[in-house]
Write a protein that binds this DNA or RNA. Sequence first.
DNA 1: ATGCCTCAGCTCCTGAGA
Length: 266
Amino acid sequence: MKLATWNVNSLGVRLPQVLDWLSKDPLSQEQEVTPGSGVDVLAIQETKTTDDKFPAKELSDAGFHIAFHGQKTYNGVAILSKYPLENVVKNIPGFDDEMARVISATVNGVRVIGAYFPNGQAPDSEKFVYKMRWLTALHDWIKVELEKTPKMVLMGDFNITFDARDVWDPVSLEGTIHCTVEERAHLKALIDLGFTDAFREFDQAEKNYSWWDYREFAFKRNRGLRIDHILVSNQLRPNLTQCVIDKRPRKNERPSDHTPVIACFK
DNA sequence: ATGCCTCAGCTCCTGAGA
């Protein structure tokens, strides 16, 4: 099983790229078309589309079961899966939120949660206050969910870096949004519920990021952040065999500013 | 420096992203 997460920054714009990527082997450098070798489950963030405009037919025709939770202009999340999606839940139950940020489903006995964490804008902003509230609500909900379904994957655009390794310039960006002590404490609290950061379970090259600003040739200069993560629960961790970031879609024409992260399980 | 890109929308500017 291959699971992946990708913030596509508008599914309306990126659908052809998503379909193309799904049809190929994300681990093959040649990127040859090998049907059936693509990812089995993809969590998508920032669909930026209402449910009535979601490209359900195109994705179903490509062979995927789909669950989606969208809104106008901003946010919006979805899960695509080659296997049936059971018990779909939208957002964090009990947390009153106008924004479509979370979608969950069970796939082959694994609880898959796809999430688009709030950006937070700046540490002294109202949006940061909302981010902290949202993170607390997520933590408290995940704690209960994990007891119910110990085989769990929590993945998505976290909008938080773990440490200096995830930041292209950790000195100048220390304490800025995505790199604050408060955000990282929340991320650690999630890990402490019983998860591991799949990416760091394996040897990785240095300066490996999942997002680059559109401006200032940031991708070409590799000025990025690793803010897209796949957290694997302790009970599922022994099955984890690989975790990679696929930078190739960031080289596309009209790319998303994020690129996919993939985790493989035996 | 709050712009440099990119996207959506009450669209030829603005808000937001990260």
